[in-house]
Protein backbone atom coordinates (compact mmCIF):
# COMPACT_ATOMS: atom_id res chain seq x y z
CA UNK A 1 0.00 0.00 0.00
CA UNK A 2 2.90 2.28 0.87
CA UNK A 3 4.19 1.79 -2.67
CA UNK A 4 1.06 3.31 -4.15
CA UNK A 5 1.38 6.42 -2.04
CA UNK A 6 5.04 6.73 -2.98
CA UNK A 7 4.13 6.40 -6.65
CA UNK A 8 1.36 8.95 -6.35
CA UNK A 9 3.67 11.38 -4.56
CA UNK A 10 6.23 10.96 -7.33
CA UNK A 11 3.66 11.70 -10.02
CA UNK A 12 2.38 14.64 -8.05
CA UNK A 13 5.90 16.05 -7.79
CA UNK A 14 6.39 15.69 -11.53
CA UNK A 15 3.04 17.39 -12.09
CA UNK A 16 4.05 20.24 -9.80
CA UNK A 17 7.21 20.75 -11.82
CA UNK A 18 5.13 21.03 -15.00
CA UNK A 19 2.70 23.45 -13.39
CA UNK A 20 5.29 25.71 -11.85
CA UNK A 21 5.79 29.07 -13.48
CA UNK A 22 7.54 31.69 -11.31
CA UNK A 23 5.46 34.65 -12.43
CA UNK A 24 2.15 32.82 -12.17
CA UNK A 25 3.15 31.52 -8.73
CA UNK A 26 3.69 35.09 -7.58
CA UNK A 27 0.17 36.24 -8.40
CA UNK A 28 -2.24 33.32 -8.49
CA UNK A 29 -2.84 30.44 -6.08
CA UNK A 30 -1.09 27.20 -6.83
CA UNK A 31 -3.37 24.98 -8.96
CA UNK A 32 -5.34 22.46 -6.92
CA UNK A 33 -4.57 18.84 -7.68
CA UNK A 34 -7.61 16.62 -7.22
CA UNK A 35 -6.11 13.70 -5.28
CA UNK A 36 -9.03 11.41 -6.06
CA UNK A 37 -8.78 11.99 -9.77
CA UNK A 38 -5.05 11.39 -9.55
CA UNK A 39 -5.70 8.10 -7.75
CA UNK A 40 -8.32 7.06 -10.29
CA UNK A 41 -6.08 7.83 -13.26
CA UNK A 42 -3.40 5.84 -11.50
CA UNK A 43 -5.87 2.96 -11.15
CA UNK A 44 -6.80 3.15 -14.83
CA UNK A 45 -3.23 3.02 -16.08
CA UNK A 46 -2.04 0.57 -13.47
CA UNK A 47 -4.04 -2.14 -15.24
CA UNK A 48 -2.22 -1.63 -18.54
CA UNK A 49 1.01 -3.22 -19.73
CA UNK A 50 2.53 0.16 -20.55
CA UNK A 51 6.06 0.99 -19.33
CA UNK A 52 6.08 2.89 -16.02
CA UNK A 53 7.39 6.10 -17.54
CA UNK A 54 4.67 6.12 -20.16
CA UNK A 55 1.98 5.46 -17.56
CA UNK A 56 3.23 8.40 -15.52
CA UNK A 57 3.29 10.68 -18.52
CA UNK A 58 -0.25 9.74 -19.46
CA UNK A 59 -1.45 10.41 -15.92
CA UNK A 60 0.34 13.77 -15.95
CA UNK A 61 -1.23 14.79 -19.27
CA UNK A 62 -4.72 13.80 -18.14
CA UNK A 63 -4.25 15.71 -14.89
CA UNK A 64 -2.97 18.74 -16.80
CA UNK A 65 -6.20 18.73 -18.78
CA UNK A 66 -8.24 18.48 -15.59
CA UNK A 67 -6.29 21.30 -13.96
CA UNK A 68 -6.56 23.49 -17.07
CA UNK A 69 -10.34 23.03 -17.06
CA UNK A 70 -10.61 23.65 -13.31
CA UNK A 71 -8.44 26.76 -13.60
CA UNK A 72 -10.79 28.32 -16.11
CA UNK A 73 -13.71 27.69 -13.77
CA UNK A 74 -12.05 30.18 -11.46
CA UNK A 75 -12.30 33.11 -13.90
CA UNK A 76 -14.56 35.67 -12.28
CA UNK A 77 -17.39 37.45 -14.03
CA UNK A 78 -17.16 40.54 -11.84
CA UNK A 79 -17.26 43.85 -13.65
CA UNK A 80 -15.55 45.84 -10.95
CA UNK A 81 -12.20 44.58 -9.83
CA UNK A 82 -9.28 46.22 -8.10
CA UNK A 83 -6.09 46.38 -10.16
CA UNK A 84 -4.52 43.38 -8.44
CA UNK A 85 -7.70 41.31 -8.84
CA UNK A 86 -7.85 42.26 -12.49
CA UNK A 87 -4.27 41.13 -13.00
CA UNK A 88 -5.04 37.92 -11.17
CA UNK A 89 -7.98 37.22 -13.46
CA UNK A 90 -5.81 37.85 -16.50
CA UNK A 91 -3.25 35.37 -15.24
CA UNK A 92 -5.85 32.73 -14.38
CA UNK A 93 -7.01 32.81 -18.01
CA UNK A 94 -3.44 32.50 -19.23
CA UNK A 95 -2.51 29.80 -16.72
CA UNK A 96 -5.35 27.58 -17.99
CA UNK A 97 -4.26 28.15 -21.58
CA UNK A 98 -0.67 27.39 -20.65
CA UNK A 99 -1.59 24.10 -18.94
CA UNK A 100 -3.64 23.11 -22.01
CA UNK A 101 -0.62 23.78 -24.20
CA UNK A 102 1.53 21.64 -21.91
CA UNK A 103 -0.68 18.58 -22.23
CA UNK A 104 -0.60 18.88 -26.01
CA UNK A 105 3.17 19.34 -26.00
CA UNK A 106 3.75 16.35 -23.73
CA UNK A 107 1.61 14.03 -25.84
CA UNK A 108 3.28 15.30 -29.01
CA UNK A 109 6.61 14.37 -27.47
CA UNK A 110 5.14 10.95 -26.67
CA UNK A 111 4.08 10.78 -30.33
CA UNK A 112 0.56 9.77 -29.35
CA UNK A 113 -1.79 11.56 -31.72
CA UNK A 114 -4.66 9.27 -30.75
CA UNK A 115 -4.49 10.35 -27.13
CA UNK A 116 -4.37 14.03 -28.19
CA UNK A 117 -7.62 13.46 -30.09
CA UNK A 118 -9.13 11.55 -27.18
CA UNK A 119 -8.44 14.30 -24.66
CA UNK A 120 -9.58 17.00 -27.10
CA UNK A 121 -12.89 15.21 -27.60
CA UNK A 122 -13.35 14.97 -23.84
CA UNK A 123 -12.58 18.67 -23.36
CA UNK A 124 -15.04 19.57 -26.09
CA UNK A 125 -17.75 17.49 -24.46
CA UNK A 126 -17.05 18.81 -20.97
CA UNK A 127 -17.35 22.41 -22.11
CA UNK A 128 -20.61 21.69 -23.89
CA UNK A 129 -22.03 20.35 -20.63
CA UNK A 130 -20.53 23.16 -18.58
CA UNK A 131 -22.33 25.67 -20.79
CA UNK A 132 -25.57 23.71 -20.47
CA UNK A 133 -25.29 23.81 -16.69
CA UNK A 134 -24.20 27.42 -16.56
CA UNK A 135 -26.97 28.54 -18.87
CA UNK A 136 -29.47 26.31 -17.07
CA UNK A 137 -30.57 24.99 -20.43
CA UNK A 138 -31.01 21.36 -19.39
CA UNK A 139 -34.51 20.35 -20.43
CA UNK A 140 -35.33 18.19 -17.43
CA UNK A 141 -33.90 16.73 -14.27
CA UNK A 142 -32.33 13.73 -15.94
CA UNK A 143 -30.47 15.77 -18.52
CA UNK A 144 -29.36 18.19 -15.79
CA UNK A 145 -27.96 15.30 -13.74
CA UNK A 146 -26.39 13.78 -16.84
CA UNK A 147 -24.60 17.05 -17.60
CA UNK A 148 -23.43 17.41 -14.02
CA UNK A 149 -21.93 13.95 -14.06
CA UNK A 150 -20.53 14.28 -17.58
CA UNK A 151 -18.47 17.28 -16.52
CA UNK A 152 -17.01 15.08 -13.80
CA UNK A 153 -16.50 11.84 -15.70
CA UNK A 154 -16.10 12.60 -19.40
CA UNK A 155 -12.33 12.81 -19.28
CA UNK A 156 -12.13 9.40 -17.59
CA UNK A 157 -14.62 7.82 -19.95
CA UNK A 158 -12.71 8.90 -23.03
CA UNK A 159 -9.32 7.93 -21.63
CA UNK A 160 -10.74 4.57 -20.51
CA UNK A 161 -12.11 3.88 -23.97
CA UNK A 162 -8.79 4.78 -25.55
CA UNK A 163 -6.75 2.46 -23.35
CA UNK A 164 -9.55 -0.14 -23.28
CA UNK A 165 -9.75 -0.07 -19.52
CA UNK A 166 -12.79 -2.36 -19.43
CA UNK A 167 -14.43 -2.61 -16.04
CA UNK A 168 -12.18 0.12 -14.64
CA UNK A 169 -14.01 2.54 -16.87
CA UNK A 170 -17.25 1.81 -15.00
CA UNK A 171 -15.45 1.90 -11.69
CA UNK A 172 -13.98 5.39 -12.20
CA UNK A 173 -17.27 6.74 -13.55
CA UNK A 174 -19.25 5.37 -10.62
CA UNK A 175 -16.66 6.59 -8.10
CA UNK A 176 -16.63 10.14 -9.47
CA UNK A 177 -20.41 10.23 -9.82
CA UNK A 178 -20.75 9.21 -6.18
CA UNK A 179 -18.31 11.88 -5.07
CA UNK A 180 -20.05 14.58 -7.12
CA UNK A 181 -23.50 13.68 -5.88
CA UNK A 182 -22.24 13.56 -2.33
CA UNK A 183 -21.08 17.13 -2.76
CA UNK A 184 -24.53 18.09 -4.04
CA UNK A 185 -26.09 16.30 -1.10
CA UNK A 186 -23.84 18.10 1.30
CA UNK A 187 -24.67 21.49 -0.26
CA UNK A 188 -28.34 20.60 -0.25
CA UNK A 189 -28.45 19.63 3.40
CA UNK A 190 -26.38 22.58 4.49
CA UNK A 191 -28.67 25.03 2.72
CA UNK A 192 -31.81 23.22 3.86
CA UNK A 193 -30.70 23.45 7.48
CA UNK A 194 -30.03 27.13 7.15
CA UNK A 195 -33.34 27.98 5.59
CA UNK A 196 -36.16 29.10 7.78
CA UNK A 197 -39.80 29.57 6.96
CA UNK A 198 -39.40 27.09 4.19
CA UNK A 199 -40.47 23.50 3.95
CA UNK A 200 -36.82 22.81 3.11
CA UNK A 201 -37.83 19.87 1.03
CA UNK A 202 -36.45 21.29 -2.15
CA UNK A 203 -33.45 23.25 -3.03
CA UNK A 204 -32.98 25.35 -6.08
CA UNK A 205 -29.95 24.10 -7.90
CA UNK A 206 -28.42 25.85 -10.88
CA UNK A 207 -31.66 27.74 -11.35
CA UNK A 208 -34.13 25.73 -13.32
CA UNK A 209 -33.63 22.30 -11.79
CA UNK A 210 -34.31 21.42 -8.20
CA UNK A 211 -32.81 18.58 -6.23
CA UNK A 212 -34.86 16.71 -3.70
CA UNK A 213 -33.26 15.26 -0.60
CA UNK A 214 -34.81 11.85 -1.17
CA UNK A 215 -33.63 11.69 -4.72
CA UNK A 216 -30.09 12.66 -3.74
CA UNK A 217 -29.99 10.13 -0.93
CA UNK A 218 -31.17 7.35 -3.22
CA UNK A 219 -28.74 8.37 -5.92
CA UNK A 220 -25.79 8.51 -3.53
CA UNK A 221 -26.62 5.15 -2.01
CA UNK A 222 -26.95 3.57 -5.42
CA UNK A 223 -23.59 4.93 -6.61
CA UNK A 224 -21.89 3.95 -3.36
CA UNK A 225 -23.09 0.37 -3.66
CA UNK A 226 -22.18 0.22 -7.32
CA UNK A 227 -18.70 1.65 -6.76
CA UNK A 228 -18.00 -0.65 -3.82
CA UNK A 229 -19.13 -3.67 -5.84
CA UNK A 230 -16.99 -2.62 -8.80
CA UNK A 231 -13.93 -2.20 -6.59
CA UNK A 232 -14.57 -5.68 -5.21
CA UNK A 233 -15.00 -7.27 -8.62
CA UNK A 234 -12.46 -5.36 -10.71
CA UNK A 235 -9.39 -7.02 -9.27
CA UNK A 236 -8.63 -10.65 -10.05
CA UNK A 237 -6.78 -10.97 -6.77
CA UNK A 238 -6.69 -8.79 -3.67
CA UNK A 239 -4.34 -5.88 -4.15
CA UNK A 240 -3.12 -2.79 -2.36
CA UNK A 241 -4.75 -0.57 -4.94
CA UNK A 242 -8.08 -2.21 -4.28
CA UNK A 243 -7.69 -1.50 -0.55
CA UNK A 244 -6.72 2.12 -1.20
CA UNK A 245 -9.74 2.68 -3.44
CA UNK A 246 -12.11 1.06 -1.00
CA UNK A 247 -10.70 3.00 1.92
CA UNK A 248 -11.07 6.23 0.00
CA UNK A 249 -14.66 5.43 -0.93
CA UNK A 250 -15.57 4.55 2.61
CA UNK A 251 -13.93 7.69 3.95
CA UNK A 252 -16.37 9.76 1.89
CA UNK A 253 -19.31 7.97 3.42
CA UNK A 254 -17.85 8.19 6.90
CA UNK A 255 -17.18 11.94 6.58
CA UNK A 256 -20.68 12.51 5.30
CA UNK A 257 -22.23 10.61 8.20
CA UNK A 258 -20.02 12.46 10.68
CA UNK A 259 -21.18 15.72 9.18
CA UNK A 260 -24.82 14.82 9.72
CA UNK A 261 -24.11 13.76 13.30
CA UNK A 262 -22.39 17.09 13.97
CA UNK A 263 -25.25 19.04 12.42
CA UNK A 264 -27.74 17.09 14.53
CA UNK A 265 -25.73 17.64 17.72
CA UNK A 266 -25.51 21.34 17.00
CA UNK A 267 -29.28 21.31 16.71
CA UNK A 268 -29.26 22.72 13.21
Amino acid sequence: MQDIYVQLAKIKDALHVKLTHPFLAKYIPSPMIDEDKLLLFYALFDQTDLPEEKKENYIITAMLVQIALDTHDEVSTSAHLRQEEFKQRQLIVLAGDYFSGLYYALLSEMQDIGMIRTLATAIKEINEHKIRLYEQSAADFDSFTASLLKVETSLFEHVSDYIQAGIFSRLTTAFLSYKRLLLEKSKYSSESHHRTGDSAKKKKNAGAIEWTGVYLKEFCNRYFEETAALIESSFQQPSSLQKVLLARLQSFKYNQEMRYTTLAEEGL
Partner: peptide
Protein backbone atom coordinates in the same frame (compact mmCIF):
# COMPACT_ATOMS: atom_id res chain seq x y z
CA UNK B 1 -22.61 36.79 -22.74
CA UNK B 2 -20.03 36.88 -19.94
CA UNK B 3 -16.51 35.84 -18.96
CA UNK B 4 -17.49 32.32 -18.03
CA UNK B 5 -19.16 31.68 -21.37
CA UNK B 6 -16.11 33.16 -23.08
CA UNK B 7 -13.82 30.79 -21.19
CA UNK B 8 -15.92 27.74 -22.06
CA UNK B 9 -16.25 28.86 -25.69
CA UNK B 10 -12.49 29.37 -26.01
CA UNK B 11 -11.76 25.99 -24.44
CA UNK B 12 -14.35 24.33 -26.65
CA UNK B 13 -12.87 25.91 -29.77
CA UNK B 14 -9.34 25.00 -28.80
CA UNK B 15 -10.36 21.38 -28.26
CA UNK B 16 -12.27 21.38 -31.52
CA UNK B 17 -9.19 22.64 -33.36
CA UNK B 18 -7.04 19.85 -31.92
CA UNK B 19 -9.63 17.27 -32.90
CA UNK B 20 -9.45 18.53 -36.49
CA UNK B 21 -5.68 18.81 -36.38
CA UNK B 22 -5.26 15.19 -35.32
CA UNK B 23 -6.59 14.10 -38.70
CA UNK B 24 -3.04 14.94 -39.75
CA UNK B 25 -1.13 11.87 -38.58
CA UNK B 26 2.23 13.57 -38.56
CA UNK B 27 4.08 13.69 -35.25
Amino acid sequence: WDNRIAMYTGDYLFARSLEIMTSLENV
